[in-house]
Amino acid sequence: MDAESVNNKVRRKHTINVVWRYVLLIITAVIMIYPIIWLLGASFKSNAEIFGSIGFLPKHIDWSSYVKGWKTGTEYTFTTYFLNSFKIVIPKVIFTVISCTLTAYAFTRFDFPGKKFFFGIVISTLFLPAVVTRIPLYIMWRNFHLLDSYVPLILPTLFAQESFFVFMLVQFMRGIPKEYDEAAIIDGCNSFQILIKILVPMMKPAIITVVLFQFIWSMNDFLQPLIYLSSVSKFPVAIALKMATDASSGFVPWNQTIAMSLIALLPSLILFFSASKSFVDGMSAGGIKG
């Protein structure tokens, strides 16, 4: 066999490999998102059509569910609700990244008395069902006179109160060898510079993940805002989506609800898609080729 045919063989094998991967990816993608595509179709249908047929193509495309859905039956349109959501979500994301990174840094790179105990507290706050802390928390915020404001939703994130993210960042930070820190110390970095210049860049994928999750989960969170906010003018999208869903009180235009649910997914989707790109940027530092 001459070199060229070996080369061809390798190339062919590579092509087959790639084809296989695409087939697998596409099949899984279809299973994953067919239901969403069906929802997209449903947003154009009437109630009778949504529940009466399982095909996803609507009889006719009618954008009115989007127009009406955006207007809502309330005093405000979705423009207001989206702005409100961002007012809650953006500070939450920023605060979470900063406070959780600092906390994770403390837990992974320092020794101090009570460290194990404190970390135990971080983890164990995840174990108690939120249902039973709802009333005490509510009463606490009432006593702070901060009800019907965004403070109860945002302020805790400034203090690293979301253990999921602390725990996650701890796990990632522990994956980074300490030799990097030591090298930096020799270069004259102080502890804060080590964090900012060495660890944070290396943890870019993890930090992006925190941004993504906090954004998406906060966009979706509906119960907390519902409990703390009483003014409709302050409601975020997640509550607005459920403003009309009470079948016992009469007719619910499900197409509008679905239409708006899909629109509400968009910010998260766009963010996810662009963040996924920056995952790729990180590929130069990691990942398998081909």
Partner: peptide, 18 residues
């Protein structure tokens, strides 16, 4: 002060208890 039915019971209960 209005919303859909979802979660309304919890909101009401927290408000009354507070």
């Amino acid at each position: 002060e209005y919303s859909g039915w979802d979660g309304f019971d919890q909101k009401m209960a927290t408000q009354v208890s507070g």
